[in-house]
């Protein structure tokens, strides 16, 4: 065997190995997707049914059984609402820290990061009682507020690291032309950092969409997002695997696709810029 052939064989084995592991790890997702097109009887048949006539019944029944659209709407409102709110609060802060850093900017950033370390369960009781006393149990308002505060440090942090890299000369030029700080943000910084802002938003949406501590503890039905709706399928009475699969596929598909597009931002955001 020549050296070239040897190298090719090595690449082939590496590839084969990598593909096998990837397919095994992806299998549960694949199986969920396939099961969603089966009848309930096919879904629990042993040996597993591989060849069958696909049906879309589960998808329509998910709507009837658990009012999918209502819960999807809750997920969309809470994820997008809190993301927009967090951006509105974070953009000015990140802007001022990036363009006019003071002596304590670094400390402020690190302190913000430290608030992420507060485990949710440590404040479960007071948040639950506050929500109860203000009539916010099972309301989207409570979830939007909590998600906003939960993601605010990450959003500030990511925006800060983008803004920091913007050329300062542009701002100076704008100021020479008589721009106010407000103009600087709205007419110069924002248009230049649209890409950065949208990827930050994407990450925040993914995190809110999958959040499942507060959405399970603070909502029941009215405001329950998809994570909480899926949890209702855990009841032992009857096996509804096909419907569960259809509901899960609908709940996860958009976020998995979002996730594929924001891999890099995810690494940066979740590691607070420690890994780029």
């Amino acid at each position: 065997m020549t050296l070239n052939q040897q190298r090719k064989l090595k690449t082939f084995i590496t590839g084969l190995f990598a593909w096998t592991i990837a397919l095994v790890l992806f299998f549960p997702i694949f199986w969920m997707f396939v099961t969603s097109f089966k009848t309930e009887l096919q879904a629990i048949s042993i040996p597993p049914t591989l060849i069958f006539e696909p049906t879309l019944d589960n998808y329509s029944e998910v709507q009837e059984r658990s009012d999918y659209i209502h819960h999807a709407f809750n997920s969309i409102v809470t994820a997008f609402g809190s993301t927009i709110l967090a951006l509105i609060i974070a953009v000015p802060a990140a802007f001022s820290m990036a363009f006019a850093p003071g002596k304590r900017t670094k400390d402020v950033l690190l302190w913000m990061l430290s608030t992420k370390m507060l485990p949710a369960v440590g404040v479960l009781v007071p948040i639950y009682i506050l929500c109860r006393d203000y009539g916010l149990l099972d309301s989207k308002t409570a979830l939007v507020i909590i998600f906003t505060l939960m993601n605010l440090p990450i959003v500030v942090w990511m925006l800060f690291s983008y803004f920091k890299d913007l050329p300062k000369e542009i701002l100076e030029a704008a100021r020479m032309d008589g721009a106010t700080p407000w103009d600087e943000v709205v007419k110069v910084v924002l248009p230049l950092s649209m890409g950065a802002i949208s990827s930050t938003a994407l990450l925040s949406i993914v995190l809110c969409w999958n959040e499942s501590f507060w959405s399970l503890t603070l909502t029941a039905s009215d405001a329950a997002p998809l994570t909480a709706m899926i949890a209702s399928y855990s009841s032992p009475e009857g096996l509804f695997w096909a419907k569960l699969s259809a509901a899960s596929t609908l709940a996860c598909a958009p976020i998995v696709v979002f996730g594929w597009f924001c891999q890099k931002q995810l690494v940066q955001g979740l590691t607070f810029g420690a890994v780029k």
Binding site: F26, P28, I29, W31, W209, T227, I230, L244, S245, W260
Partner: peptide, 21 residues
């Protein structure tokens, strides 16, 4: 394929494994 499971919400994750696996 390898990174996809990270984007599956925890409740779906638990139910797929509990039931279908």
């Amino acid at each position: 394929l390898l990174i996809s499971p990270f984007f599956i919400m925890p409740t779906v994750n638990a139910l797929i494994w509990k039931n279908m696996m």
